[in-house]
Amino acid sequence: MSDIAASAGWWTRLANPSRFLALSNRLGPWLAGGTVLTLAVGLYLGFQAPEDYQQGSTVRIMFIHVPAAWLAMMCYTVMALSAIGSLVWRHPLADVSVRAAAPIGAVFTALALITGSLWGKPMWGTWWVWDARLTSFFVLFLMYLGLIALHRALDDPARSGRLSAILVLVGFINIPIIKFSVDWWNTLHQPASVLRVDGPTIHPSLLVPLLVMAIAFTLLFFTLHLVAMRNEILRRRVQVLRRNAARQIGESR
C-alpha cells in the first residue's frame, strides 16, 4: 500500500512544473552524457563491424536507419501515453510532453525515410519503392506533420493540450488498421521478391552495434524530449507573465 501511496505522491509532485524543472536540471546532464557516450561507442562499433557479404558497406546505413525507425514508433507511443495522461488524469505535464514530442518524432521519421531511401538506391536500384514498410512510415510522417500543424494553429495551451491528445489517440488506434491495410495493398499490387530484407538472421557482429545505436538513439530522444518539455514550460510561463504584466498596466491606469 505504502508503495502505491509513495508512487502517487511522486507522480503528483512531478505535476508541479517548478519541481519538474529542478528534476530535469539534475537529470539532463546525465542523459546528455550517456547519449554522447553510447553514440560514440555505437559509431565506433558500427565502423569496426565487418561488411555484410550481400549488402557490402551499405549495411552501415542500417545502424542509423533502424534506430531512427524504432524511435519514430516509440515517440508516437510516448505521445499516446502522454495523451492518456492528459485526458484521464489531466496531468499538466502530459500536455507539455505531447507538444514537445511531435517535432522530434517528425524529424526521426524523416530520417528513417531518407536513410531507407539511400539504402534502397544501391540495393533495389531505385530511390523509392511503394513497399509496405516505407509506405506506412510515410503515412506516419504525415500524421506527425498534421499534429505539428494543429499545434501551430492552436495557441491557447489550456485548450490545445486536450485537443491534440484526442487527435494523438485517434491516430494511435488507427496505426494498426493502417499497417494492416498497407500490407494488404502491397501484397495485392507487388510480388514480394527483392523486397524481402528480413531474410537470414542478423549476425552478432552486426547486432551488437545495432543495439548500442538503438540505446544511444533512445537516450538521445529522452534528452531532447526533456529539454523540449523544459522549453515548452518556459514558453507558457512567459505567456502568463506577459498576460499578468498587461493586466497590471491596465489596472494602474
Binding site: 505535476a15 508541479n16 517548478s18 489531466r90 499538466p92 514550460i233 510561463r237 512567459v238 507573465l241 499578468n244
Partner: peptide
C-alpha cells in the same frame, strides 16, 4: 521580463499549465 520587474507571484504554483 524579470528585469522589467515582472515576476511570478508565487514560484511554486501551476501557472498557465491548464491544470
Amino acid at each position: 521580463l524579470e528585469a522589467q520587474g515582472i515576476r511570478r507571484r508565487s514560484a511554486g504554483r501551476n501557472e498557465g499549465m491548464g491544470a
